[in-house]
Design a protein around this nucleic acid. Sequence first.
DNA 1: CTGATGACGGTGC
DNA 2: GGCACCGCCATCA
Length: 125
Amino acid sequence: MGGEKVSIYERMLLVVRVIPFGRVATYGQIAWIAGAASPRMAGYALGGLAADTDVPWQRVVNAKGGVSPRGDPLATDRQRKLLMEEGVRFETDGRIDLDHFGWDGPDPEWLEANDFTLLPWRARG
DNA sequence: CTGATGACGGTGC
DNA sequence: GGCACCGCCATCA
């Protein structure tokens, strides 16, 4: 496939779309899978989403398993609510147990079909 | 073109 | 455990 000129942001959003219901992935994980240079890129990509997007942005959390704060505190509340509705449990300290709810990444099949290649972190072809 | 701006994460103290 | 520092670089004004 390939050839189409899609931005790295779009590639990351494509990955976010396949995070299963009830599971969460970290910003770093998304950036790594999509081939972005830094975990921050994943956050920037999500920051540009429209309010009515169909991208399951709520399933992306930080490396500590927490909901990253942003300008609007209501947005973080909404994210927690959406995740709880998916059955994701929050510990008393407000974090998600990534060992239990963390996503282990796309199937190799999917990666190949979408022309994704997992590279060592920070090693671009 | 230049500079500001981000929903992060690893490291060191 | 917490906190500050710094690297990260695609967009946009």
